[in-house]
Amino acid sequence: MQPKVVTLNVNGRQHYVALMPNVTLLHALRDLGYTDVKSGCEKGDCGACAVLLNGAPVNSCLVLAWQADGAEIVTNVGLGTMDRPHVIQEAFADAGAAQCGYCTPGMVISAKALLDRCPHPTEAEIREAIAGNLCRCTGYGQIIEAVQLAAERMSEGSGE
């Protein structure tokens, strides 16, 4: 087994990194310092590791880093910072949607993917979009509120 230099474009930043083929995108990202991408189960059951891969929300634990060579990857920290949070991140904070916060980065990614294609989702559509993100703390109520709040604010043109 030999490593190869892979180009990972993460949150707009190019990383050239030598990786073995058996490294998942989850671990490659975390080793690059993107620890906002969380490990919860490593087999696609919990969604804590969700990232956008060329715009699609996926479990990064089920993608080999080599498979993401050259792809556009977005993680939660790429959407906003504490100084300039993304509308969705701010809405999650305001709605009390983050209790322990461990599922939150993956939740925000799924919410982003949803709002990108469906700016005014119904409650049912929100539930469906986050059905792959397990939360053990909130019962999902304030998370759904957060997505609705984000949708409202985005349509008011609060901007990113």
Binding site: G44, G47, A50, L53, A56, P57, V58, N59, L62, V63, S110, A113, E128, A129, I130, A131, G132, N133
Partner: peptide, 9 residues
């Protein structure tokens, strides 16, 4: 089928 994240792959 599974969940939306899995469905995209």
């Amino acid at each position: 089928f599974a969940n939306p994240l899995v469905r995209h792959r």
